[in-house]
């Protein structure tokens, strides 16, 4: 009787962690520009082009990619459990749409506003990502409100609310797209297709802390997530307060998604693909699936970002295009497999 034990946990997570570290380093070494690594490492803080490429241009974005890839994957896992649907993905909650809309509005109406951090000591951040996060919060509250019945978030209503909300947001964004000028349209593309371009270690550190906290909190609910995939009734009968779990998981994943989209725009398909691939490799037990997906998501996005920088060099493709390029066909394959697996009724 094969069972999840400590050995398997350590082995799988250890291997993935090693792969993640390797991917981060490799993505910082490789890119459209040839890097003299020795030069870069010799004097990391100097104004040497190699050092600046490695430490200032590449490393922050690679680290951000690892965090966001991991965060998106984890949100995908828990949302699939919450909605009882293996085809669910973070985009479905409407939160990412709201964040994009908030960011786009910020871009149009106050692109130059800055907010000093820690009284100016830690620099300044643009108001636009804050506007995006605000959009995410508002979306979350609206979808929550529309899906809450008798203290329970019914998966069916959640899905429906999220999808309808997304369509509405998409229409608004298309409208804005038709009235913005050429330069703002470029900014719009950032929100819709994502980009990991950043040099701010402060942002990267903040996002890492935020996502790791969210991940740990959700990981602790691993057993309950297993049970809720048995069906809501079965989960209740097996000892889970499903109402509370649904509300908590919805809020936690919405907050994570909101923050991620605020920083890097909408990067889709990770939350759909990675959970599935990892289920095939490590099984459906969430106690292992969650950390494994977190690490695998980070690995995937690191490489996707490298590809985004290399494929059409010197231009940088929005990384969401790379993930969609892999994700689209993958999604079709999933549908095909689901259709074959279900017995004819």
């Amino acid at each position: 009787m094969k069972v999840l034990d400590r050995r398997k946990m350590l082995l799988v997570n250890g291997a993935l962690l090693a792969l993640l570290l390797l991917s981060v380093i490799a993505s910082a070494i490789f890119g459209p520009v040839r890097l003299d690594l020795a030069e870069a490492l010799r004097s990391p803080f100097s104004a040497d082009p190699n050092a600046e490429i490695f430490f200032r241009a590449r490393l922050p974005r690679v680290l951000l990619g690892a965090a966001i890839g991991g965060g998106m994957a984890v949100c995908g896992v828990v949302l699939q459990a919450l909605l009882g649907n293996p085809l669910a993905c973070p985009q479905m909650l409407g939160v990412s749409g709201g964040a994009s809309l908030g960011g786009i509005l910020g871009l149009i109406f106050f692109p130059h506003w800055l907010l000093p951090v820690a009284g100016g000591l830690l620099g300044e951040i643009s108001w636009t990502p804050l506007a995006a996060f605000l959009g995410a919060l508002i979306s979350m509250m609206l979808v929550y409100r529309f899906s809450l019945f008798h203290g329970r978030l019914h998966p069916y209503h959640l899905l429906l609310s999220g999808v309808i909300f997304n369509s509405f947001i998409a229409a608004l964004i298309m409208f804005l797209n038709s009235i913005v000028d050429f330069y703002q349209a470029q900014g719009l593309l950032f929100w819709l297709m994502g980009s990991l371009s950043t040099r701010a270690y402060l942002t990267v550190a903040f996002i890492w802390a935020y996502i790791v906290c969210g991940f740990l909190w959700l990981w602790a609910k691993g057993v309950s997530l297993n049970l809720i995939t048995m069906g809501e009734e079965a989960a209740l009968q097996l000892g889970v307060e499903t109402g509370a779990l649904q509300r908590q998981v919805f809020v936690a994943s919405s907050l994570m998604i909101g923050a991620m989209v605020s920083v890097s725009g909408m990067i889709g398909f990770i939350g759909l693909m990675i959970p599935h691939v990892m289920r095939l490799i490590v099984g459906s037990d969430h106690r292992l699936l969650l950390p494994a997906s977190f690490l695998a998501g980070g690995i995937f996005l690191c490489w996707a970002d490298t590809l985004a920088r290399v494929v059409l060099a010197p231009a940088e493709l929005p990384v969401g295009i790379i993930t969609a390029f892999f994700g689209g066909p993958f999604f079709l394959y999933l549908l095909y497999r689901e259709g074959r697996r279900k017995p004819a009724l």
Binding site: N85, T229, R279, G283
Partner: peptide, 9 residues
């Protein structure tokens, strides 16, 4: 149950 679990799980 929409997810692949073994009988033992």
């Amino acid at each position: 149950i929409h997810f692949p679990y073994t009988a033992a799980e």
